[in-house]
Simulated assay, not measured.
Amino acid sequence: MPASQSVAEFRPGAGLLVLGVDTCGPSGSVALARLEMSTAQISGQTAWDIGQSAEILGQVTLAGRTYSATLVAAIAELLTKHEARLADVGAIAVVHGPGSFTGVRVGLSAVKGLAEPGKTPVVVVSRLEVLAAKVGVPSASLDAHRHEVFLRLAGREGGAQQLLAGAEELMEINPAPTRVAVCDDEAATLLESVWQGTELIRSEAPTATDAIRTCVPAILAGEFADLALLDGFYLRRSDAEIFGDPSTAKARHV
């Protein structure tokens, strides 16, 4: 199937290949999945639907700090293993942060380079959202280093807020969430020290496979990113920006 096709143009019963990319954590991954597309008539309009979650065809794990050298080769290996070409990929799901500044940029740059020639649709998703969806709770937290956490807080009306927080900021959040998904000891330790009444639900770290599954509704709804505006979701500035600014460096040591 040409990569320039949109989801709405696929024939009923045709499989939609989805590539997943996550380079935001201490280790990364790429995954390939197939969505079996079917159509249903709702109030006279045709709607895309899938009866079950995506069929995961395979996943390749990437060692941390090697993304720039291994990411594209891993994608090529995964496609070749499943007798697919880049032109066969109908959509790409990419995790755009928060996480390693370099990892986020490497992943997004690679996805832009892969998607632009064939106008392949791209869906972006937060790593916090993926972790929350993986566990099945609305709130999630990841280690942000420097005694801080990346935090996703569910809103009362269904929305979600994502922020960077240390112990002081966590104490100001009232009420604290009742359940939070975590996948690393550092985030769990900080949350336990402040929110004694919160249940921490531990999980394996989210992967590209989890990202694809989280993005299925957005793919089917055609909620694609504008590649020209696609950027990382950092939640804080890079080390170069922080430590390269004399006034900021001075303030950190007052």
Rank of each mutant, 00 (worst) to 15 (best):
V124C: 04
L151D: 04
T198V: 12
K112G: 10
V194T: 02
A187Q: 15
V194K: 03
V21G: 00
S27I: 02
A14R: 14
T39V: 07
A144Y: 14
A160G: 09
C215S: 12
V216T: 10
Q52T: 13
D226W: 02
C215N: 02
P175K: 09
R127N: 03
T23M: 01
S109Y: 05
K134P: 10
Q59I: 10
G28R: 07
I201K: 13
E77Q: 08
G99R: 07
S141L: 15
P2T: 05
A240W: 05
R213V: 13
A140E: 02
V111M: 02
A91G: 11
D22V: 07
A87V: 05
C24P: 05
H253C: 10
E186D: 15
G25L: 09
A74G: 05
A154G: 14
S109H: 00
T178N: 07
H147Q: 14
A84K: 08
L79E: 00
W48V: 13
T209W: 02
V18S: 12
T120Q: 06
T207K: 05
E172I: 09
A84H: 04
A251L: 09
G222M: 08
A87L: 03
T248K: 07
A84F: 09
V89K: 00
A205H: 05
P117T: 01
A251D: 15
A73P: 00
I242N: 00
S203A: 10
Q161C: 02
Q41E: 08
L108K: 14
G99H: 03
S139K: 00
A110K: 07
I42Q: 12
V149S: 10
W48E: 12
E168Y: 10
G136E: 10
F10A: 11
M37W: 12
R202V: 12
P12M: 13
A40F: 13
K250I: 10
V94P: 00
V254K: 08
G28M: 06
N174L: 14
L229I: 07
R11Y: 08
D143I: 12
G58W: 07
D88A: 05
G244A: 09
L78G: 13
A84Q: 12
T178W: 06
G64H: 14
V124M: 05
I201L: 10
R179K: 15
G197Y: 05
F233Y: 14
L190R: 07
D231P: 01
L32F: 04
L170P: 15
A228S: 11
F233I: 04
H147Y: 10
I201D: 07
A132G: 09
V216F: 09
P12D: 15
V104C: 01
T214S: 14
V182L: 14
A188F: 08
A91E: 15
L191M: 11
T248S: 13
G51C: 11
V7Y: 15
A3V: 00
V94S: 07
L16M: 04
A115Q: 06
A87H: 02
D231A: 14
G107T: 06
T46S: 09
A47P: 03
A176T: 05
P26A: 11
R127A: 02
A221P: 11
L220C: 13
V21K: 00
C24L: 03
R34I: 11
G155S: 10
V106W: 00
S38E: 08
V94T: 06
Y234E: 02
Q41L: 10
P121W: 01
I219S: 09
S43L: 06
V18Q: 09
D239H: 15
A63F: 00
T207L: 05
V135L: 01
L200N: 08
